[in-house]
């Protein structure tokens, strides 16, 4: 099973976490890391497990680097029913009404095109006490374990 980390970022915090997670995982796994702004939905592959990292920006919107991806998804409507992903969200509970709405939107966008989510959507809070990587590393380990038997089955 290959791994691909896709990140949507606005301030660079999600990008930094994606790079850290790539470094953490690449010893034991084949792993690529892409900005969602540079990733074409046509490139989703069934033998790859996608780890999405996404922040929230403005009034609960997708971060800037995820917006072109969302536009292409909506225009091309790819069939992602053989695709598996997990998603890690970053937000700031200071803005509680829209807390982690960016990753929620991204997860819904993936699901709307048939993609299969593995594990729960985890939310890091920038106003909380935890470091993002302290939540993200165990999350990645857990979802990779959960995905072992499923990803690529249909391929």
């Amino acid at each position: 099973m290959k791994l691909a980390i896709l990140y949507g970022t606005e301030t660079g915090n999600a990008e930094m976490l994606a790079e850290d997670l790539t470094a953490e995982l690449e010893g034991a796994n084949e792993v690529d890391c892409h900005n969602l702004a540079d990733f074409a939905p046509a490139d989703f592959a069934p033998d790859t497990f996608y780890l999405l990292i996404c922040s929230t920006y403005g009034d609960g919107e997708l971060p800037a680097s995820a917006q072109p991806f969302a536009e292409v998804m909506e225009a091309e409507k790819p069939d992602l029913s053989a695709i598996h992903f997990a998603i890690f969200g970053m937000g700031d509970s200071e803005y509680d009404e829209t807390f982690n709405h960016g990753p929620k939107r991204l997860a819904e966008l993936m699901a709307a095109h048939g993609a299969n989510q593995i594990g729960d959507r985890i939310a890091h809070d920038a106003s909380g006490a935890d470091m993002a990587e302290d939540l993200a590393f165990p999350w990645a380990e857990a979802v990779i374990e959960m995905a072992q038997d499923t990803v690529g089955e249909a391929a």
Binding site: T11, G12, N13, M16, E94, S127
Partner: peptide, 15 residues
């Protein structure tokens, strides 16, 4: 002072 989440970008800058 009460927007500590926004100040989190300094973790990137420390890098």
């Amino acid at each position: 002072a009460d927007h500590q989440g926004t100040k989190g970008v300094t973790r990137q800058f420390a890098r």
